[in-house]
Each structure stands twice: as C-alpha cells, then as structure tokens.
Design a protein around this nucleic acid. Structure first.
Length: 611
DNA sequence: CGCGTTTGACCGGCGC
DNA sequence: GCGCCGGTCAAACGCG
C-alpha cells in the first residue's frame, strides 16, 4: 500500500447539500485536524475532473503523526488502511476509488514528479462524499508534554466526538444511499419511458430496412452502455400493454378531436354521404386498394408475418410480444340472421376462407371508411349454433367514426384495452387472461371471456344469451346497406343487481352502446327508469326495473370498485361512455341525448381517470 | 363502366 | 423439409 498518500474529495463546493441542509455538520472538534484544501487544482485528463494536489504544509508535515489520528470530514483517505469503516457504502466507494482513481492519479503523479507526494490529494468532484478517517489502531498520541490525565481526558472527549461524528456521517451516508436509489429509480423510469416512446415512434415510421437497422443498433447500444439492456427490455416489455393502451387511448382522444377538426373535409363528407372510394385504378387499369400502408398498419392489421420477418433474431422476443399485443382481438358473438352485423362502419370484403373445424366459411373484411384504416374483421358463423354470428375485430380506426360506429368501436377498443391493460404485466395479460377476466368481469362469464387458446389474446363479448327468453333487440334501420340483424343482450335475466359486481358498468355500457349506436330495444317495461329511457313499445324484454337495473349508486360504486382495481379501466370506460354519450348526441332519434345520470357517471369516471 | 365480391394463388408461421 | 393452416392478394366476375 502507498501509505502516506491521501486523496481528498473536495466537498467545499457542496457543503450545503439541500437534502441535508437541515442538519448542518457540527463544527470540527479542536483536537481534530482538518484537511485543509489547497488552492492548487490540477486537472487529470484521465480522470476528467480537477484534482487538487497539495503538498502538506510544514505544519502538516509536523503534524503528520498526529494526522494519523485525525477525523477527516469530506475526505477520503485512499492510501491508508486505517480507513476501515462499518459503512458498506463507504467501503464500496473507497473500493471504487481504490480500483479506478488511485492508479490513474498515481501514474500521472509519477509522470509529473518522481518524488511521491506525502500529501493529501484533493479531488474536487463537486460531490459531497463524506467519510470518517479514524485511526483506531494508532489512537494514542504521546507528545510528551501534557500530563497523562489531561491526555486521557482529551482522548475521551475526542473519542466521544469522533463517535458522534461517525454516527452522523453514517446517517448521512444512509441518506445519500437513499437519494441515490431514488435518483436511480427516476433514471430507470425515464429510461423506460424513453424506450417506450422510441418504440412507439418506430412503430409509426415505415418499417424500412434502415429503421430496422436503427432498432438493432439502438438495442446494441443499450447493451453496450451497460444500462442492462436486458433489464431495460424486460421493463419495456412490462410496459408493452400500456404502450398499446396509450395507442388506443390516443386514438380515442384523437378520434374525437379529429372528428371536430376533420368534420368538414371532403373525405368526411364522402363518408357521411355513404360513398366509399377506397379503390384506385392504377395505370394498368387494375383495381387496387388505395392503402397507405402506414407504418404500423400492417402490424396493426391482420398480418403478423411481415412484421416478424423484419425483426432481427435478437429482438424477436420483444417484437413477438409487441405483435401479440397489437393483435389483441375483440370477438363479438351475436345472434344475427344477416350475413354481417351492422356496426356503423363501412367494410369491404377481401377474402373468404374455409376455416378448419367449421363448415361455415370465414369472411374477411377491411374497414373502408378511410384510406389506410388498419381495422379488419372476420365474420364467421358459429359451427355449433349457426344463428350466432361471430365477428372478430382487430385494430384501431384511424379516422373519425359516425355515431353509430363510435359505440361499437369504443366498446371493442375498450375491451381490447382492458385486455392489454397495463395494470398487469404483459405476461399476466397474455399468460393468464382468466385473471383479467375474473378481475374485471367476475360475474359475467357468459358475456366477456378471454381466450387463452387463441393465437392472439382475444376478448369475446358474448351478446348471445342462453336464456330461453333472450333479450332481443332489433337493429333500428338507418341508411345501412345490410339487413337488420337480431341481437341479444347479455344481461342475465332476473339476476340480483348486487351480483353484477364490477361487471355492471361494462354491461351497462354495452347496453347503452347498443342502444345509442342505433340498436333499439323493444320492451314493455321501462328499463331502469333513470338510466334507460323508454324505447319502442313492443317488448319481450324481461328486465324488472328494480331487479335488473342497478341503481346509479350501485353503478357508480361498482364502477369505483373497478376503477380502484384498475386505474386503466377508468380511462377506457370513461372513453367508452363518453363516446356513447357522444353517440347519443349524434343520434337524435334515440331521444336520450341528455341523460343526466349517464353523463354524471361518465363525468365521475372521467374525473377518476383524470387522477 | 364502376365498384364490390368471388375465388384461386400465394405467403409465412408453425408443428411434426 | 414438408405439409397444414390462416391470412392476404389480385384477377376475374357480376351486378346495377
């Protein structure tokens, strides 16, 4: 060891660290010699920060022996093995400096001057590193002048003060450690956020080769920088769903704003006029769908293959999961004699296949309400019960929706969002969908289920009812092309409202969305006088107002339960309900534009989601 | 003729 | 490597 060398970290620039300003260090005890910082500061290139080299003054040299016994505040004595402390943090720090700083300094010093310094090196890092240098093994100093009794007394006082000082420094070290972990936490969170944002940007950019290379490069860089590429990736994967949720939420918020801003565009006028021109004739006179395969459109769409192909093997896992998250589907089962249920959107059939295990063909539709809309759906009759039409939606509309379509889109996107809810890890969402199913819809097993066996996470909204007296609702005719399918609503007949549990708001939302989206109930009873207005007079609806329809308080409390269970659910549900209300406003023929209770609930939910 | 549908080919993933 | 299967493409077709 290079005894006699001292490196002092200059704390003079940070004596008033805000975190500990409330507890100023006590004045140094007179018997202790402080290390006096020289004003000479030398920059060590290899260190990158100024090092204050100072030969000890004569005084200090004279006091060298006494110096062994000093307590040094704001100083790290690297070169003394007296520097033993119970504080592991200090030990680590000293170890670090021993390993990395000392050799550099030693080398540079030897280059500068053959004669080794017998002084403290003061390294001004601007950091406050506090440590104690207590020479316990050489604590006895006999100057031969003072009497033994005096010496003992002074020693005792000194010892007590040193112990106090040590205690204080230990606590400060502890606080520093806490602060460090806090900063580390913030750093990690920011890093994750950055990675998520970058990833989102990547998804929005065209998936060109260069982009792919960038992704690979970034990942390599992350690994190289030792921020634990693996860790960051895993953390990001945990964020996966929230990313997707953000996408959906963005869409929900954008679509409303887009609707406002784009409502006067020719395209929108076209849509409103019910005209779709999604094909363009190319120069060959060939029909070609004018799709702006927007960056993620392919990946958002039904085709997973290309996305996976583009990803390098080392990012396969992540991309697989991302693709999986994007491919979350919402399947709607409804009784319908029509070949396709009307959901307010315009669709173009682009394919039909015979699927295995089902004699009924599966039809593939693409949303044609806007160029490049990635939303697709599959329509297939249930093999067991051919009156049941299974419509599977995937993707998020990139365009404003007519009120009639808003509700279904909101419901499906809300369901998809729930599926991808970031409140649980992606692994939970995918690997254990039943968990989600139970958490969100514990009492509605026949209404919404999650398929674990499906290749992609799928929420199934079962709008059929096994009850022999199903709640039927007739699709109200608007200017839709398709015939009027017959729907059933999933509300269990005769069920105690208390048993609705947290499923109630969602079921209610579904109920309302069906109603507001142009689906009309026929009923004899006025369902839920406060929440559901009277509709068509014809009825086979068997919901008892008091039995079937939970009170607003029940609904709100159930919603609150759901909200507290999953904050993300709040935003989604609020978005869905808001859109439903929006749909109601746009759907004047429903005559329920200003249902105060629903508005109230939505505003409550919105205020919750704002938290 | 324009536009939506049909349908066979094609592609990629996946399991054996 | 091969075959199966789901999903997509696009030429051909048909309807208004």
């Amino acid at each position: 060891m290079d005894k006699g060398w001292g490196l002092t970290l200059d704390t003079s620039s940070s004596t008033s660290l805000p975190f500990f300003s409330s507890k100023p260090p006590p004045p140094p005890p007179p018997p202790l010699s402080m290390s006096f910082f020289s004003k000479d500061t030398t920059m060590f290139p290899a260190l990158g920060f100024p090092v204050n080299l100072s030969r000890p003054t004569n005084n200090e040299e004279e006091e060298e022996e006494g110096d062994q016994n000093r307590m040094v505040v704001g100083e790290v004595d690297f070169f003394s093995d007296r520097n033993k402390s119970s504080s592991s943090a200090r030990h680590d720090r000293n170890h670090l400096l021993h390993q990395h700083v000392k050799p550099i300094i030693k080398k540079e010093l030897l280059c500068a001057d053959e004669k080794p310094y017998n002084s403290n090196l003061q390294v001004n890092t601007g950091l406050q590193l506090v440590t104690a240098n207590i020479g316990s093994d050489q604590s006895t100093v006999d100057d031969g002048v003072t009497s033994e009794a005096e010496d003992k007394r002074a020693k005792n006082t000194e010892l007590a003060q040193m112990q106090m000082e040590l205690q204080r420094m230990n606590s400060e070290n502890q606080k520093l450690k806490e602060m460090l972990s806090h900063v580390n936490g913030n750093y990690t969170a920011l890093q994750m956020h950055l990675v998520a944002l970058m990833q989102q940007q990547q998804l929005q950019k065209p998936r060109s080769d260069s982009t792919e290379n960038e992704v690979v490069q970034k990942k390599a860089e992350e690994k190289k920088h030792g921020i634990g590429g693996e860790l960051v990736q895993r953390q990001f994967l945990d964020l996966g769903p929230s990313g997707t949720v953000a996408e959906v939420d963005d869409h929900v918020s954008n679509s409303s704003s887009d609707e406002r801003t784009r409502s006067s565009t020719p395209q929108n006028n076209k849509i409103e006029a019910g005209v779709t021109r999604n094909y363009v004739r190319n120069t060959n006179g060939k029909n070609e769908l004018a799709r702006e395969e927007s960056p993620g459109s392919e990946s958002q769409g039904w085709g997973p293959n290309k996305l996976q192909k583009l990803n390098a093997p080392n990012v396969m896992d992540q991309s697989n999961i991302e693709a999986t998250m994007r491919k979350a589907r919402v399947s709607v089962r409804a009784r319908s004699e029509a070949p396709m249920i009307s959901d307010g959107c315009q669709w173009r059939k682009y394919g039909q296949k015979m699927a295995k295990g089902n004699p009924c063909p599966r039809a593939y539709y693409r949303c044609t309400m806007a160029v490049g809309c990635p939303v697709r759906k599959q329509v297939q009759r249930c093999a067991e019960d051919r009156t049941i039409l299974v419509t599977t939606y995937e993707g998020t509309h990139n365009h404003p929706l007519p009120p009639a379509a808003m509700a279904m889109a909101s419901t499906t996107s809300a369901a998809a969002s729930m599926l991808l809810s970031g409140s649980m890890t992606s692994a939970d969402g995918i690997m254990n969908p039943n968990l989600l199913s139970r958490a969100i819809l514990p009492c509605s097993s026949n209404m919404a289920t999650l398929s674990a066996s499906a290749p992609f996470p799928t929420v199934t909204l079962d709008l059929t009812n096994n009850d022999p007296n199903p709640l039927e609702l007739q699709r109200h005719h608007h200017n839709h092309n398709h015939s009027a399918p017959l729907f059933q609503l999933p509300f269990p007949v005769g069920q105690n409202p208390q048993n609705f549990g947290v499923a109630t708001p969602f079921a209610q939302a579904l109920y309302n969305q069906s109603k507001f989206s142009g689906l009309q109930f026929s009923q004899d009873h006025q369902v839920g006088s406060s929440q559901v207005p009277p509709l068509a007079p014809r009825t086979n609806l068997q919901i008892q107002p008091n039995q079937q329809q939970p009170s607003l308080a029940d609904t709100v409390s159930a919603a609150t339960a759901a909200i507290t269970a999953d904050p993300n659910f709040t935003a989604m549900l609020a978005a869905a309900i808001s859109s439903i209300i929006g749909g109601a406003h746009g759907n004047n023929n429903n005559g329920d534009n200003n249902n105060p209770n629903i508005n109230n609930m939505a505003s409550k939910l919105s205020s919750f989601s704002g938290n």
